[in-house]
Write a protein that binds this DNA or RNA. Structure first.
Length: 267
DNA sequence: CATCATGTTATAAT
DNA sequence: CATTATAACATGAT
C-alpha cells in the first residue's frame, strides 16, 4: 500500500506513544519481516525503553528509543502501523507489538514484504544516513535530478520514477500521477526530455509529493476526482482531463495507467 | 480456480 | 559491464 504520503500517515499513527515507556514487546519471531535480525534482540532492546522520536524518509521509517535503540520499519506492500487501546490483543499478522500503559503500538503486515530492524548507537544507523536526498529537500535540486535523468537517458521514465535511489518514496500510483500531469507517456526515454521538460518534471515530482502529503498524511484523505488517482485502479476508467478511455498495461512488471490522448506515445 | 495487488531483490538473459 | 525480464516472496481481494 504505502508510498511516501501513506508512510508519513502511518508514522504519525505511533506518535501518541512518544514520551512513554514500552512495558512489554511481543513479536512473531518466525515472520519474514525480521529477516536478517534476531527477533529476540528487538524484544530485549525495546522492553523498558522510552519511545523518543520518529522520522520518515521516502518509504523508510525510523523510531528512536532510549538506550540508543533505533527501530527501522519498511511497510513493504501491505504493512501498516496502528495505535490501539492498551488491552488490544494482537491478531495473526501483528508481527511487532509494543505495549505501553495507555496504548498498544502495532506493526501489521499480512504479506510480510515489509521489514523490521533494530540498531543501537548514539546516532541513527548507517543505512539511515546513507539514504539518498529526500524529494522535498533542497539537496534534490533540479540540477541533480536532471543529471540523474541524463545518466539513465535510455530508461523509460516510469521505471526510473520507481527507482528509490533517485526518487525515494515514489511508488506506482505517484509515478503514474506525475507522468499524467506532465502529459508524458510512461515509456518516454528519460534522455529525450528537453532541459525545460526536465525542470518541469522536477517541479511536478515535488508538487505531487507535497499535495499527496497534504491530502493523505494527516487524515488518510483520498485525492480528488481531478487527479488520475481515483481512476487508475481498474480497467474502464476515463481521463479526468479529456474523458478518453485510460489504458492499463504492465511496464517492467508494474501495472501502468495512462491517457493515450493526453500522454502521447514517444517516437 | 485464476488473476491481481500502492514493493524489493536475486538471478537469468540479452 | 549495463540493462532488462522474470521469478520469488505470502496473503487477501475480486
Amino acid at each position: 500500500m504505502p508510498e511516501l504520503a501513506e508512510v508519513e500517515y502511518y508514522r504519525r499513527q505511533w506518535s501518541p506513544g512518544i514520551g512513554a515507556n514500552v512495558l512489554r514487546v511481543q513479536v512473531h519471531g518466525q515472520a519474514r519481516v525480521f529477516r536478517g535480525m534476531v527477533p529476540e534482540s528487538i524484544v530485549h532492546g525495546l522492553a523498558g525503553a522510552r519511545f523518543r522520536e520518529s522520522f520518515a524518509h521516502g518509504k523508510q521509517m525510523l523510531f528512536g528509543f532510549s538506550g540508543g535503540f533505533w527501530l527501522g520499519i519498511h511497510l513493504g506492500m501491505s504493512g501498516e502501523l496502528l495505535c490501539l487501546p492498551p488491552d488490544a490483543a494482537p491478531l495473526r499478522h501483528d508481527h511487532l507489538v509494543l505495549h505501553q500503559k495507555a496504548r498498544t503500538l502495532v506493526f501489521r503486515d499480512p504479506r510480510m514484504f515489509g521489514r523490521v530492524r533494530l540498531d543501537q548507537g548514539r546516532m541513527p544507523p548507517g543505512w539511515w544516513r546513507d539514504l539518498p536526498p529526500e524529494i522535498l529537500s533542497r539537496e534534490l535540486s533540479a540540477e541533480r535530478m536532471t543529471a540523474m535523468l541524463q545518466r539513465r537517458a535510455k530508461s523509460p521514465l516510469k521505471p526510473l520514477l520507481l527507482d528509490q535511489s533517485i526518487f525515494p518514496g515514489i511508488g506506482n500510483w505517484m509515478a503514474d500521477e506525475i507522468l499524467w500531469r506532465l502529459r508524458v507517456h510512461p515509456s518516454t526515454p528519460a534522455g529525450s526530455l528537453g532541459k525545460a521538460a526536465k525542470v518541469l518534471l522536477h517541479e511536478t515530482v515535488q508538487a505531487v509529493c507535497r499535495e499527496a502529503l497534504k491530502v493523505i498524511a494527516t487524515t488518510w484523505g483520498r485525492p480528488p476526482a481531478s487527479w488520475l488517482f481515483p481512476h487508475r485502479w481498474k480497467d474502464g476508467g476515463s481521463c479526468p482531463r479529456c474523458d478518453a478511455p485510460l489504458l492499463r498495461e504492465a511496464l517492467r512488471g508494474r501495472t501502468t495507467c495512462w491517457c493515450p490522448k493526453c500522454q502521447r506515445v514517444p517516437r
